[in-house]
Design a protein around this nucleic acid. Structure first.
Lengths: 257, 257
DNA sequence: TAGTGGTCTAGACCACATC
DNA sequence: ATGTGGTCTAGACCACTAA
């Protein structure tokens, strides 16, 4: 219960946020409620959420408590604050940067976008390792997308993308190719799946015949292997992406803090 | 100036934090002052800084303003808060994790430490690219350290580490080998240089004869090339580290948010 | 002018660590 | 018992945006 700063006797009713089994600070409970509203689609990507005052009234807490909840959500990139305008649900579309999760940068500073080319998009039974990574039920099928990213006409990235077939029913290579924005933006608007967080495992490998052909390098050339597991709300894994990057004229950048 | 929440006429004197040329929120000014104190060595790594109340009194602001300044410093890993005890200057020694900046993880979950072996540590004129990265004056010399990291008796990492000779005068291979903790902890205690932040550029390369020998792989085997530029306070670069990682049984892990 | 997020304050109480 | 950081409140004013 929030403390009372007045000599009045403290009120005994809990301020919204029904007790539940776990104890946590009020602002964490508020945050959890807000995240659930995001998850349930109460506010869609790009839309604004209610003002801090409104939310404070709804949850019967002070504005400062709501603020702290939203602060954390902002640092987790779940929402974006804009002074004078409001707080907005984060989206992979209309973001400043084209690809929020792509860490590949060109050696020369030119930040031109990359051209996509979809090789295939088909439904199939998921291999065991993919099924395990995506928490698929036994026998549940998956979509696999293969595509390249090119800069200045040269293929730099070869991706193999695994998705659970259920949530992405109806996804085709044509739909992918005709969509202008980032793939994750399409996933948001068409399938209601928002990528929140991802982990990558990176290794150095050598090009096999097929990869070498597509990336225009000799067989045996060194390539960066980037395996990404992307999650949506509740840390639920929804995409396994295996990428091969040609790092002759590009590098994978990372910040350590 | 902080706003007054009383009907009194607002006091005209600025609350410490002498004006300066740039405008910024009070808590940012406080933060800058605190960082300068860290930089000047007023509080050493591992020590506690004054309590929030003390700092609030010193700067003539409220505890909440100091708190917000320290909050940001905590998220930047400059300090660590410990409830009931105080706020402590972050250090690379006595941290839970052995190597704060090393992102290499073994395929099997075993989190055993790695054995270091120093090959050489000598002073020499810095190559042009190293001099540029470290902001060295023309002709200023540098130290170069070469070492390996091994797990289970197998060399996994081959590092070439460039440091400005000035701040690290007296550093020898013997001193490095006899020190128990992480290298960055030695830099802190012996040379007063704290690594705060780093950027890494990662590529896939093939092993040359020398690297192959040291890492026990065939010439031409794929290796992860990790070039790290580490900075101290004020974003001053103080270390250029070029690492080659054997990713046969390890991977470079990264989190995307 | 009204509404939003951003800053700042002052004070209360809680949780934890230490003596 | 005391002191620390952690949470929560209530209210003020500032900075920005849009009608």
């Amino acid at each position: 219960m929030p403390s009372a700063s007045l000599p009045e006797p403290p009120e005994t009713d809990a301020p919204a946020a029904s007790a539940g089994p776990a104890f946590s600070p009020l602002y964490q409970q508020i945050k959890a409620l807000l995240v659930r509203s995001l998850q349930s689609g109460e506010w869609k990507p790009g839309e604004s959420i209610p003002s801090e005052m409104e939310l404070a009234a709804r949850f019967k807490v002070s504005q400062g408590t709501v603020r702290k909840a939203i602060d954390e959500m902002a640092t987790e990139n779940l929402v974006v604050r804009r002074q004078g305008k409001g707080t907005f649900v984060a989206t992979h579309a209309e973001e400043n940067i084209q690809y929020r999760f792509l860490r590949l940068a060109p050696d020369d500073g030119v930040a031109s976008g990359m051209a996509r080319h979809f090789l295939e998009c088909k439904r199939m039974r998921a291999p065991a390792d993919v099924g395990r990574a995506l928490d698929l039920k036994a026998g549940e099928s998956a979509l696999v997308i293969r595509r390249t990213l090119s800069r200045a006409g040269v293929a730099v990235v070869l991706d193999e993308i695994w998705l659970p077939a259920g949530p992405f029913k109806g996804l085709t290579a044509e739909r992918l190719a005709s969509y202008a924005g980032p793939m994750y933006a399409l996933f948001e608007t068409e399938f209601g799946v928002r990528m929140i967080r991802a982990e990558e495992k990176i290794r150095a490998v050598v090009a096999d015949a097929a990869s070498a052909e597509l990336l225009g390098v000799p067989v045996g050339a060194p390539l960066l292997s980037v395996e990404r597991l992307a999650h949506t709300y509740g840390d639920k894994p929804v995409e396994l992406r295996r990428g091969l990057y040609n790092t002759n004229a590009h590098y994978y950048r990372n910040e350590l803090n």
